[in-house]
Nucleic acid binder design. Structure first.
Lengths: 222, 222
DNA sequence: TAGATTGTTAATCGATTAACAATC
DNA sequence: TAGATTGTTAATCGATTAACAATC
């Protein structure tokens, strides 16, 4: 299904398409044109057609796109049908937030373990029904359960220390909430979530209004 | 201080420069060249010089950049010296994580209020020492305290309902953790943090290794 | 068939990299 | 001064938009 090489910009838009198509499906909408989509997402119809065509023709001339088919196709492209397993390393507030966020599971990301330096602080806490384990159990857990992904929700220093253990244990994707830029081998994928950088960017943009905002209030109808 | 029109791509890199320069400062490093910076950030020296020059010349030929001066200059460009006030709407796990994240305050973002539909569930919780208030108190609080920013950490439906209240109350920036794309007037800035989209992107990238990863393991020394 | 809308090529725009003269 | 490294212009690359023929 994968063609040559998909531009980064396209990939980062796929989840947004997926989310919006999910909403349309829930509303019972059966077909949608690139022009319809462009109205509700912040993109031109041309860009949407261009984007989707990187993966082959999902649409039909004169008709548009079948919502359900497109939704499922994008889901497959994103690999949501693969059933990833994920652990969370760091049971602080962000870690617990990720853990209890059940929607991830619906999207094919299943949390199978949570680890913390001080598991005794979390006895009896309900994080999606999963018990918080001690960090010392991590290596054995990795060997036995081979999780695909680790969400790193610890302070920077801890994150840098844990990373080699995760890699040694075969983790192939790291969802990094720490402030550290992790250095990993080629076959490990890092996805950074730098919240304070996001907030600083907001601060900047508030003071420097530009013609076209990332998410603007404009919207033409029909 | 602001020149013509700074490219979006540059803006989104500023917080990263800022963070890295902060580390260098803590290490006591006094000067740094664009080549040094390029080695540790994932960018070419040329890009770094190009980026910084949008704001005027911070460097000196034959010497490089003064770390402290550059750090402070970028801080000013980002407006971190303005002392933003922020409220948090939604005292779920993510909301409380944001609330208790004291580093924001050091960066000039001060949390002055937390609101939740059910404040009674949060009696006695310590979120950076701020009490969780009921949603009914929000309009009056906005009038009195005029916060600059609201972090929206509620489920989508709630977020869409609260947004008009925030705008009516004079909030100029919304840090949006909900899954909704909010529609706001031109003078209000939205910064989205879509965690599940980030996770889906990770899933995709794990299965489609590309030559140049966003954060790769490569790094040449000197 | 006529109308609608895609798929796809070409044109434009923006961002990154390369190169080098200016200058500390 | 000689060496280093910026500031800045030019060249390349990539992403977006426009246009339209193909086709349902």
């Amino acid at each position: 299904m994968e063609e040559k090489e998909i531009p980064k910009a396209v990939i980062s838009r796929l989840p947004k398409y997926y989310r919006y198509l999910g909403i349309l499906m829930d509303e019972g909408v059966e077909r949608v044109s690139s022009a319809d989509l462009s109205r509700h997402m912040h993109a031109t119809a041309s860009q949407i057609r261009q984007d989707l065509n990187h993966f082959g023709g999902f649409g039909q001339q004169g008709y548009g796109y079948n919502v359900k088919y497109l939704y499922e196709s994008i889901g497959k492209i994103l690999g949501l049908d693969r059933g990833y397993t994920m652990i969370i390393v760091g049971a602080g507030r962000i870690g617990m937030a990720v853990a209890s966020y059940t929607r991830f599971e619906k999207r094919g990301f299943k949390v199978i373990g949570i680890f913390d330096r001080r598991p005794e602080n979390h006895r009896g806490e309900n994080a999606g029904g999963i018990e918080v384990r001690g960090m010392d159990e991590l290596p054995a857990f990795l060997r036995q359960n081979k999780p695909d992904i680790a969400a790193l929700t610890m302070p920077s220093e801890g994150a840098a220390m844990v990373t080699p253990i995760l890699i040694e244990g075969g983790v192939k994707g790291i969802w990094n909430f720490s402030h550290m830029d992790l250095e990993v081998p080629e076959d490990v994928t890092i996805q950074d979530v730098h919240l304070s950088e996001s907030l600083m960017e907001l601060g900047y943009r508030m003071n420097h209004p530009s013609g076209g905002q990332k998410t603007s209030g404009r919207r033409q109808e029909s």
